[in-house]
Design a protein around this nucleic acid. Structure first.
Length: 211
DNA sequence: ACCCAGGGTCATA
DNA sequence: TATGACCATGGG
């Protein structure tokens, strides 16, 4: 795992994740990017910014139908408008970053998971990049790479993989932030046509498929 | 025309 | 508990 991290770091360099201006913007982006290309999220975030709705108060205040139109480019906009509004109401009631930041990581994670629209991956993205907690995001990219490299079992579900990696790989928060970003950078290079190809995870070009 | 993207919820068996 | 349908836009 350490070796993989070094390999990826050497190959792709510092990724500077999460691309957001504020911590709150990270939380918004984490919801909007669900099953959505980041390019589309950027448009939605920019709409929110120019409408002065890039704050918990702003999103709580704005009309639902307006919010829908603002975030439309990010897809599933009816669902996400509801989720975003619900999350912001909850976030403020909990005292924002000041209140929630006082919680330990696991209680905070459980609290996030109780909010409608926040599942394990979104919660971990918020924890890692919004709350600066050292957690591992065991998303589909991570699962694909870590199983293809033979480091972890293919069948591990989200929580199992996350727990396993966190037990093996320690380090400061910045390293966890970098690790996830590097795995995503690499996944975008890796071969998608052949899920069984174990080569293209560690080599940009492998003999059996064109990356 | 299809598939996927920095997922999660809900109904069904 | 484990799949499947659904959400919905935009790019390849």
């Amino acid at each position: 795992m350490v070796s993989l991290y070094q390999t990826l770091m050497h190959r792709y360099g510092h990724q500077a994740w999460w691309p957001a201006r504020t911590r709150f913007e990270v939380l918004v982006g984490a919801i909007l990017t669900q099953n959505t290309a980041w390019r589309n999220v950027e448009k939605a975030v920019e709409n929110l910014r120019s409408a002065r709705c890039l704050s918990a108060r702003g999103i709580e205040r704005v009309e639902l139908h307006t919010l829908r139109e603002l975030i439309r480019p990010s897809g599933c906009f009816k669902q996400k408008a509801d989720r975003l509004k619900g999350f912001c109401i909850w976030f403020r009631r909990q005292g924002g970053f000041a209140g929630l930041g006082a919680l330990d990581t696991q209680p905070l994670r459980r609290a996030l998971l109780e909010v409608k629209g926040i599942g394990p991956e979104t919660a971990d993205a918020m924890l890692l990049y919004g709350f600066d907690r050292g957690v591992f995001i065991a998303d589909a990219y991570a699962g694909r790479i870590l199983s293809r490299t033979g480091l972890y079992d293919v069948g591990l579900g989200y929580d199992a993989l996350s727990v396993a990696v966190m037990a093996d790989f320690g380090g400061p928060v910045a390293v966890w932030q970098e690790l996830h970003a590097l795995l995503v950078a690499h996944a975008k290079q890796a071969c998608k046509k052949r899920p069984d190809c174990a080569q293209c995870c560690l080599r940009q070009r492998c003999a059996s498929c064109t990356v």
